[in-house]
Amino acid sequence: MDLKDLYRDVIVDHNKNPRNFGRLEPADLHADGHNPLCGDQLSVTVNMAGDRIADIRFDGSGCAISVASASLMTEAVRGKTLTEFASLHARVHELLTQHDSSIDPVSLGKLGALSGVREFPARVKCASLCWHTLQAALQHETNAISTE
């Protein structure tokens, strides 16, 4: 269990300087996510162009893993279609949760920096909160979602 696997430079950087931080107003879609265990709270706003994610912002507060994960996610999904998002989400989920995952972190670009999270089971929810929240927004579920 090496700390540097969890807090890679990319993660530390995105925590300190989150990208796409804020809210789109107006926004086509929006959802709030909450992790009651840690108190992590974030909201995602999205504007669509057809079935593509044209623009995305997030805001809220949380630990470094949840903030960096959300920041990295917003960069990775901009311009993606709903189908592309679903497949990326599935791969990230596998990367975060499965020890024997065959996914090469490098193939996920900067998101690969999250591969250390699976060594810290207590922190997986922190990294996945933003993805669940965005999924809820894309499914037009505007209700708050929770990791519990």
Partner: peptide, 13 residues
């Protein structure tokens, strides 16, 4: 600057 959860993890290591 550090969220309590990050502290908990780092202290554990």
């Amino acid at each position: 600057n550090i969220h309590p959860h990050d502290l908990g993890t780092i202290l554990d290591t």
